[in-house]
Structures are given as structure tokens and as C-alpha cells.
Design a protein around this nucleic acid. Structure first.
Lengths: 104, 104
DNA sequence: GGGATATGTCGGGAATTGTTGACATGTCGG
DNA sequence: CCGACATGTCAACAATTCCCGACATATCCC
């Protein structure tokens, strides 16, 4: 899985908020659009970008499209983050050692 | 800490690669620029964006600027990811239950 | 001091992204 | 069948991002 489209998709605040909304529960395209000030077509194109990054699933139900979250690509992002996590843990344990030394 | 500048900074592949380089070891601006095909000034502006997102630290050393990684803002990103992690874990345990049922 | 070196910043242009209103398609309910 | 509704797509424009070459500043070395 390529992480580039995921990073790009998450760069826009509207798209981050969309997947946060979908974390609570799935919603129709219209219900999602109502949450924002921008036009419905702008939201529709944000949804297209999220779909392209495979972060959402789309289910047809009559004349509605129900969007639901697909969190798998975010796991790739977590994996990308992993090496950095060890870095800041190292820094923290370094800080802890420093504090211990200071106490003596 | 606001995560928006961090997400924006990580949207560009060059900037992601820069902080990956800095994860290995700190480097001068010139050494970073040599890693890429684009011009030195373009890299310098990417470094400015990373600095603005607080993802790198800059130390003057004579006429050189030594850049080092500051991973703390990435912790905020991991925190943002956390609720989604529970989601995909739930899906996995759901899948595990399904497999158990299938076995019976 | 003076030329070479390292680096940030700026102006401008190309490329990309974001937004909107208009339109097309498909569906519902009578 | 027909009007209302839900939604995606498109053309056009605005805003932003990206990139480069030119320049300014500070430092090094002789």
C-alpha cells in the first residue's frame, strides 16, 4: 500500500474532519455536506479524494450514497510513524536518566 | 499543539524524506539538498515549512546550519490516529470471531 | 581585505488544489 | 409518467503550492 495518497488526503482539514465524522457512524453524502459551510459539490470532491486514497467505502442505497470509514490505510501511516516513536521514547528515557542524575 | 501544520508538512514527499533522513542523523542544509534533484533553494523552502511545523531544529555552526529532527509533533499525529486504531482493532477481533464461528 | 562557500529570502511563473454554479443521471413517491 | 430529491461531474476561476534563478548576508580561509 502506498502511503502518499493517504498523507495527501489528510492534508486538508475538511477531509480529516470527514473521516472523524465517519468514525462515529456512517453517513450519506448529503449528511456529510451539511456539516460544512462549503458547497455540496466541494464536499463531493473531497469525498472523491478520500475514496481514491481508499479511506472511505461507498455503498449505494437508492438515490443515496452511504459513506463509511475504511481505517486500514491509516495503519500504514502508523507504520510510517513507528521509527519516529522509538526516537521520542529514547529522548524521554534520556530525559528520565538526566532527572535521576540530577537527583543525586 | 496544533496538528494542522504537521499534516500539511507531511503532505509533500520531499519533506517526508527529509525527516526520514534526519532520523538517521542530523545534517547540514547542503547535505540535505544534495539528496534531491530539485534546486537548493527549493529544499531550503521545504526546510522552512518543516521548521514552521516544529518538526526540525536548526543550529548555527559557522556558515553552516545543522538540522536535526524534532519528533514531538509526530506524537500529536499518533494521538490523532489513536481513535482509528481502536476501530481497526475492533474489525480484526470481529474477523477473529467470524473465523471461530466458521470453525464450529 | 577579498574571493569562495553556505544558506535564507524574494519575485515571478508554472502547476496543482479548492471552490462554485450549472448540468446530467438515477431514484423516489404519488 | 412526472416533479422532487440525492448525488457525481464539469468548466471556469481563485487561491495556494512548488520551483527556479537572482540576490543578500554571514562566514571561512588565504
Amino acid at each position: 500500500m502506498n502511503t502518499a495518497p493517504v498523507f495527501a488526503a489528510l492534508a486538508h482539514p475538511v477531509r480529516r474532519q470527514v473521516i472523524s465524522l465517519l468514525l462515529v457512524r456512517e453517513r450519506t453524502a448529503g449528511a456529510i455536506a451539511e456539516e460544512f459551510e462549503i458547497s455540496r459539490s466541494a464536499v463531493s470532491e473531497h469525498l472523491g479524494i478520500l475514496r481514491h486514497a481508499n479511506l472511505v467505502r461507498e455503498a449505494k442505497s437508492g438515490r443515496e450514497r452511504i459513506y463509511s470509514l475504511n481505517a486500514e490505510p491509516l495503519a500504514g501511516l502508523r507504520d510510517w510513524l513507528e521509527p519516529f516513536a522509538t526516537y521520542w521514547k529514547a529522548r524521554l528515557s534520556q530525559l528520565a536518566q538526566q532527572l535521576e542524575q540530577d537527583e543525586q
